[in-house]
């Protein structure tokens, strides 16, 4: 093969492998219907980049039609501290939450989890209305609550030892092309109040 054909062949190989990984079998929590629609879309078109966006549009449409079929909202109401702030400053709200003795004293028993809810998120994902608190069901006295938007939440990241940095970088995994209604983190606790698992989920419009 001449140098030119060799390079051309290489580029074709790269594109073929690349399309392969883009449309690889998706993990079980991703929606199977959406991914099969995506494959159809690619088969009907030549391999070029516009196909990608086209396929994506179709898959998004399929996702939207599926939406709200499964309501898996992790918690209905959160009671705790709330503020509109930079997402990167969430640490400040955490210390406010930690110091809030009147809130902790209202707990019926050991709390099972702490939730962090982000709503009214700015387009560039820099600031939001952030709430940190417990499920209102775990509190004795009724107090002001934040209602968590209902819908089909998708997993973004989950693990037993996620650092603050990992949670922050997880924001980059969100689909910028869809409207984000809410993002919620669930910090699961054991009896000695250690975090044993963190899950971040997103609700798209």
């Amino acid at each position: 093969m001449s140098l030119f054909t060799s390079i051309l062949t290489s580029i074709i190989i790269v594109l073929a492998v690349w399309f392969g990984v883009i449309y690889q079998p998706t993990p079980s929590y991703a929606k199977p219907i959406a991914s099969s629609t995506t494959t159809e879309a690619t088969e009907n078109n030549a391999a070029n980049e516009s196909v990608l966006s086209q396929a994506k549009a179709i898959s998004d449409k399929a996702k939207r039609s599926l939406k709200n079929q499964v309501n898996n909202t992790p918690v209905n109401n959160i009671a705790g501290v709330q503020q509109h702030m930079m997402i990167s400053d969430v640490g400040k709200l955490w210390s406010q939450f930690d110091r809030n003795q009147s809130l902790h004293s209202k707990l019926k028993d050991y709390p099972s989890a702490i939730y962090v809810l982000y709503r009214n998120i700015s387009k560039d994902f820099t600031n939001a209305d952030i709430t940190i608190g417990y499920s209102d069901l775990e509190l004795k006295a009724s107090m002001s609550i934040t209602i968590v938007p209902n819908g089909n939440y998708q997993n973004v990241i989950s693990g037993n030892e996620l650092s603050a940095i990992q949670l922050e970088t997880a924001w980059k995994k969100l689909d910028f092309n869809q409207n984000v209604v809410a993002v919620i983190e669930r910090h699961q606790l054991n009896k000695s109040a250690d975090v044993i698992n963190v899950t971040m989920q997103v609700l798209y419009k």
Binding site: V17, W18, G20, V21, Q24, P27, E49, K172, K173
Partner: peptide, 25 residues
Amino acid sequence: RLVELPLTGWTILACIVLADLAYYW
């Protein structure tokens, strides 16, 4: 980046193949 590929075994395998091609060149 043009797309974001998921961090899976398949992605790693594909990346090894492409990295090997890049190594050749």
